[in-house]
């Protein structure tokens, strides 16, 4: 009805393009068996973070453990890992960025210590256990991992709930919320349970 005359964020487009080309490059690498995987590509789209493609994959697994797929899509189905990286790269202060990067780098070591294997090799219940261990930890020693996981969880929830899929298909958002009713009886609200 009201045409939109400019794209509010050319950066989004650029970043999507960059990610697409990276996906092509890394996809290509997988097909070459002799490739040296110790040289992990750094994702240039997130210039404030030194995040590699394998760390991005790990982040997707962590996000999926926080919000798994079921009846309704899970975090990585909605590319929430990319949203997390955008938010940490753009909207978190440099101190927060450092603890995020450090925690992500140290995560597999923590997974080995706490769950016996790197995160990728764990089954879902063990993955959940690792995350619960981090979130319940209190000591100074796990501070970085905990900060990283709290940030990741916060942005996973935001990225999931504010995704196009959820706001369109599951809990449709309306730009026009309707007239104000300041006296709604909660008992009269009918809400069908949404199964995850």
């Amino acid at each position: 009805m009201f045409p939109i005359h400019f794209n509010p964020n050319d950066q989004t487009m650029k970043r999507r393009d960059a990610l697409r080309s990276l996906a092509l490059i890394t996809g290509g690498l997988v097909l070459v068996p002799a490739c040296d995987f110790s040289k992990d590509d750094i994702l240039s789209a997130y210039k404030n973070l030194n995040v590699t493609t394998s760390q991005q994959k790990l982040l997707a697994q962590i996000a999926d453990t926080i919000i798994p797929a079921g009846y309704i899509k899970g975090a990585s189905d909605l590319a929430v890992q990319d949203f997390i990286l955008v938010m940490v790269n753009d909207c978190v202060d440099s101190e927060g960025q450092k603890s995020f990067s450090d925690g992500l780098s140290a995560f597999d070591a923590f997974s080995k210590k706490s769950g016996g294997k790197v995160f990728d090799k764990l089954e879902v219940p063990q993955r959940e256990q690792v995350l619960k261990t981090v979130l319940a930890s209190e000591g100074e020693e796990d501070k970085t991992i905990r900060a990283f996981l709290n940030t990741t969880k916060r942005f996973t929830i935001q990225g999931f709930m504010m995704s196009e899929y959820i706001m369109t298909n599951v809990k449709p958002y309306s730009l026009i919320p309707g007239d104000y009713n300041g006296e709604v009886l909660i008992a009269d609200l009918k809400s069908e349970k949404i199964n995850g």
């Binding site: 919000i67 798994p68 959940e128 809990k171």
Partner: peptide
């Protein structure tokens, strides 16, 4: 928002 996994997901959606 305290949990993780399917419990968290259903809490968020409801």
């Amino acid at each position: 928002q305290s949990g993780i996994g399917m419990e968290l997901k259903e809490n968020l959606l409801n």
